[in-house]
Design a binder for these strands. Structure first.
Lengths: 332, 332
DNA sequence: GGGCTGAACTTGAACGATCCACGGGGGTTC
DNA sequence: GAACCCCCGTGGATCGTTCAAGTTCAGCCC
């Protein structure tokens, strides 16, 4: 009834611990008939190698750290949720577990990561929500904690260990789609927080439409990321003659939608960002972030670093995909 | 530059490993001046005890397993998100980490939990999304994996290791609130999936209003948990003379809202469930689930079991709280 | 037949923290 | 002053796995 160990199994089978270890880790080092005998015993006894003992001996935890980010700004929180899902699933397939931990600030996050790494609780980590001049990559590199980030090193020195969504290309595609629908004055409804992500999306929209500086200033409105502000911004854009809009988030596109709807317009003139459940439920078009590809990429990056700490990597940009919707009979 | 260990620190300080270990784990066993000297050295060198070595020696991982539940049904996914947040934060304060893992089915979840437990990767686990005749509690008990569940053992034998939200009380409070606002025909917009959670909420609504069987049948409409179905259900309820509605979810209440709004009604006659970001953004009232208390309770329960595997526990019901909103100037 | 090779398996020694039995010094008690 | 206890601290053994260095033995060649 006690947990079987290498030693107890070995005694029972009259072979050495090492032979059993080899059957598990290097099967071809063992003669086929011995291997079969050992494997049978493993199955029968339900033996599982102790992760703790392995971690101690190999100096490797087979785990990755992930900060549980702060409750997200409203509706758009679900991107991180989806990203976490992909990451956990793919990590699992590579034999890695994800360890969650809380942190209120970036400093606390780095402290905890370094601590987790020292204590052999994780081998590497994944960063999210990178910001202008984010200090975390440099600090982690300093402490030689392998990492990869979902998000560019905006402004900071390029460390190459990141994957990000190409917001510029996404906004450009959205704008082009609206133009293909026949719209000639297409507005941009963005964030006033000065975030690099927001600026990037705005540039994509302006470039796709080949706008002059004056035109861009006229057709872009930047507000806080709330439904109310989105509605107010949309009203403003309509008054400036826009007939369609590219939004920096689904929160804003929801606000825009409330205005369009009241005036009897079609929801097809709005394209949001992130393809959240709300957009799906309301039949609003949105740019879907390729979180699965991003998760796969950052995972590959940390695994590569674990295998070879000196490996050189290069950042990767992945374009989002337009999910065009036409609403539903009832709520249309 | 190498990682300090107990042995290396001990050699440097001319004390034994045990003394340092005592300073960390049982400070009062060591003379104050020795303690101070050791603590200083710990700070200076940045020494951290190896979690792997500890786990091996103590047969305890200081970690809890949590299945990353499947992408949730639309808008309401955020409850689990909030619950996870609370859990991670509180576990951290007790020195426990949360290990995420994916599972497609309940069987796979149990298998992985038993495996994680065997390999000493976790000490216990948290279950969520309990369902009618859920087999997981019995299976985990069988494998002697300590656990606690967010959700009652609907239908199954009461194992006592759970905390849940009292949906019945919540729906009753919502109904009473609407009546206090002067409504006399208050409908219920619920799920057609036959879920025990949904039935429970419906019972709360009916009891609070002292409805007869006929009245209940007339004023309750059950549909799928989508915005469109919610809108259709609300239209039906209005045609039956209802002037207000208690909804089983914010998804449904959003659907109901689209109908009420089109007819120029006030959003105050709608109360949803889960207090999701969408409800907040749109100024809709909703019953907020006390996820923080639930997380605290289940955490206490697993810690108690880790300390004493034979401990007897009793399930806990916690009432949700009404968050009354009145909309905003713009979207009102 | 001596020596070499390689396959198949065994053995001892880590990894780093904690438990346990014990030792030496100092004080108390009879 | 001898027996006893308490406090502080020591060193060995232990948790379960894997690495590195053996050992054994069959097969082969000159």
């Amino acid at each position: 009834m006690n947990k079987p160990t290498l030693a107890s199994l070995a005694a029972e089978l009259n072979v050495s611990r090492q032979t059993i270890s080899n059957v598990i880790n290097f099967p071809d080092r063992v003669r086929p008939e011995t291997r079969a005998r050992v494997q049978e015993a493993i199955e029968r006894s339900g033996y599982r190698p102790s992760a703790a003992a392995r971690a101690l001996r190999n100096q490797r935890a087979n785990a990755l750290g992930l900060r549980l980010s702060n409750p997200r700004n409203g509706i758009s929180g679900s991107i991180m949720d989806a990203f976490t899902h992909s990451l956990v699933e793919r990590a699992d397939q590579s034999g890695y577990r994800i360890v969650l931990f809380p942190a209120r600030t970036n400093e606390e996050e780095v402290d905890k990561l370094v601590e987790l790494r020292r204590t052999l609780a994780i081998d590497a980590c994944i960063l999210t929500d990178t910001w202008l001049d984010d200090a975390r990559p440099a600090q982690l590199a300093e402490a030689s904690v392998p990492f990869a980030a979902f998000g560019r090193p905006w402004g900071a020195k390029d460390h190459g260990r990141w994957a990000d969504v190409d917001g510029r290309a996404g906004a450009a595609e959205a704008a082009a789609h609206l133009r293909a629908l026949g719209h000639e004055r297409i507005g941009y409804l963005g964030w006033s927080d000065g975030s690099p992500v927001g600026k990037d999306r705005r540039v994509g929209w302006a470039q796709a439409l080949c706008l002059s500086g004056d035109q861009e200033a006229e057709l872009a409105v930047e507000v806080e990321d709330t439904v109310d502000d989105g509605a107010a911004g949309m009203a403003e854009l309509l008054s400036r003659g826009a007939t369609a809009v590219v939004c920096a988030s689904d929160t804003l596109s929801l606000g825009a939608f409330t205005v369009i709807r009241r005036r009897g317009g079609s929801r097809q003139c709005i394209i949001g960002f992130d393809n959240t459940p709300v957009a799906r439920e309301l039949g609003l078009s949105s740019m879907a972030q390729p979180v699965d590809e991003v998760a796969a990429t950052v995972l590959d990056m940390v695994l590569a670093q674990i295998a070879d700490p000196a490996v050189e990597l290069e950042g990767v940009l992945i374009a989002p995909a337009l999910v065009a919707r036409q609403g539903s009979a009832l709520t249309g």
